[in-house]
Design a protein around this nucleic acid. Structure first.
Lengths: 315, 315
DNA sequence: CTGAAAGCGCTTACAG
DNA sequence: CTGAAAGCGCTTACAG
């Protein structure tokens, strides 16, 4: 029994002869190790949990792809939990993951509530935050510098000669992907001596429809806008649709720069200029951090860059 | 011990008094049941596995969303496995899932190879095929009628007055989403007495670039084409981009009908007319079938329908 | 190098 | 209604 276990786990302490004999018998009996029993005995499950608000956006799907690929290389399985941004569901999932004794948790894009942290701490598993962070709890995170990225995007527009720049943003109450990008937008305008006008900011939810609505809204308020910074590609696509309906040509009449650089960005007409986030790598690195348990304060700020395609014109 | 177990599992056989006492102690000790131990004892893991070629397409992500949501309602967790359409990886995953004693397997969009089935049978867990099927192995499947759906799409085009209809298809060697849709296309043309020309068929891989390339290819071969049936939304978006580069207006100069009706379809300019598959429901139903283990031959053909938006014009 | 023993934390008959 | 016992299939000291 013990010897077989050693052989199975590639340890030392057995002769070549018995190894062969054991392996033959395993073949003959079509033996398959039971990971559950092993898990109970040595308290390892080789599985991690991923909590995300929605799996169906391209951004989330790409993140998951990176996480899953890296985890698999490191011999871990991943359980996905689609919280729908719902606190109760999140708590349920956390409970299940705790009972299933996962060895690590990746928490994506949401605000980390106190009640979550309570369970997480009891769970005892390490956590990595992705595309979010918590000022209160010092869990390691992997994300881009949202404020800087937004700042860069708007500077890019300004350098192309734009002065009347609208912002289509996520919620201003979103401390992570909302507020910081708004701040970056304002900082860039201020830097160039352009007055910040609150009425040139529209608030959406990062999805298509709200992008189109935001665009309508801003044009109602100021038909002379020449450029938009839109804080997600999906909303940017909404803005493109809106521009098209209004008969505005892109980039001749209106310039648009997005955020994320998911596959959507290459698929628009014309192709979308946008701020690139290395989404798949973010997922990979988060999984590696988690599984290697490098401990606290191992946060990593991922590099962003502007990918120039065809939606921004020079004024 | 046994009584506590009964209480935890909501069985009968204990007095109200002891129940309260036990629950109080559980609170005080901050007790958390160990699902691994339970799994070992009663041979249940309450988790299923999902094998899919890629998680990052909108189609796959939506499917996964449906699967995950239904599974969660039925108290099951889902482990995702991203095979990258790679046979070796698939075998690895199958092995891991077997060792982890999953209670069911959802196999998506790929051809079911003999070697997979060998492991699956040993695994002993039920299987449901999604967006695929196997003529050789009678596993239950959930999908639309691909041939009929393609037939309907092309008939729609014909009824709008089109006669010169190109096809941008998946691989002709793809027995599931490739060939049947090609057959549907041919059947519709034949039905209306339109000669089938092989040179009006381009072969892609369901993704954006191959859609654009297919469009270029077909226009080289016949500049007079007035309509395309494109067997995925993503390829249809590629065709839209190609048309735009060639200065063709949609739908005035060129009509396009896609396939899938993922969220992409609403986001194009102009919005894409396409064949709708109830993707999320397909995922939900597959999970429900699997978890309820309704046994063999419980396959379900999901309804498709044409969603009219703005990319098809009348001739 | 090899195997007997205890233990991982539960559940399921079984006896009381 | 309650609890002792065996067992789920492994791993980890420990003794030989």
């Amino acid at each position: 029994m013990a010897t077989v276990s050693r052989i199975l786990n590639d340890l030392t302490g057995y002769s070549e002869g018995t190894r062969q004999r054991v392996e033959k018998v395993m073949k003959d009996l079509d033996y398959s190790p039971n990971a559950i029993a092993r898990g109970l005995a040595n308290k390892q499950t080789s599985t991690i949990g991923v909590l995300l608000p929605s799996v169906s956006s391209r951004f989330a799907a790409k993140l998951l792809q990176g996480i899953e690929t890296a985890s698999h290389s490191l011999k871990h399985s991943v359980i996905v939990c689609n919280t729908h941004s719902n606190g109760e569901r999140t708590m349920e999932y956390l409970q299940v993951l705790k009972e299933k004794r996962i060895e690590g948790l990746i928490f994506i894009s949401e605000w980390l509530k106190d009640e979550y942290v309570e369970v997480i701490k009891k769970m005892g598993a390490p956590v990595v935050l992705v595309s979010t962070m918590s000022p209160k709890y010092r869990f390691p995170y992997v994300k881009v510098d949202d404020k800087q990225a937004a700042y860069d995007a708007v500077c890019y527009l300004i350098k192309k000669g734009h002065r009347k720049i609208g912002l289509i943003s996520g919620s201003r109450y979103d401390q992570i992907a909302g507020l910081p990008r708004i701040e970056g937008y304002k900082a860039a305008l201020t830097e160039y001596g352009i007055p910040v006008k609150e009425e040139l900011i529209a608030y959406g939810d990062f999805h298509f429809k709200s992008g189109a609505a935001g665009c309508e809204e801003l044009f109602e308020r100021d038909p002379d806008l020449t450029a938009f910074f839109v804080t997600s590609d999906e909303m940017a696509i909404g803005a493109i649709s809106c521009a098209y309906r209004r008969g505005k040509r892109i980039p001749e009449d209106l310039s648009i720069i997005g955020f994320d650089d998911t596959e959507d960005a290459e698929m628009t007409v014309p192709p979308l200029t946008t701020v690139h986030q290395p989404v798949e790598d973010i997922g990979k690195i988060a999984a590696e951090l988690l599984i290697h348990k490098r401990g606290f304060d191992e946060s990593v700020i991922m590099p962003h860059r502007i990918v120039e395609r065809e939606t921004v014109g020079t004024l």
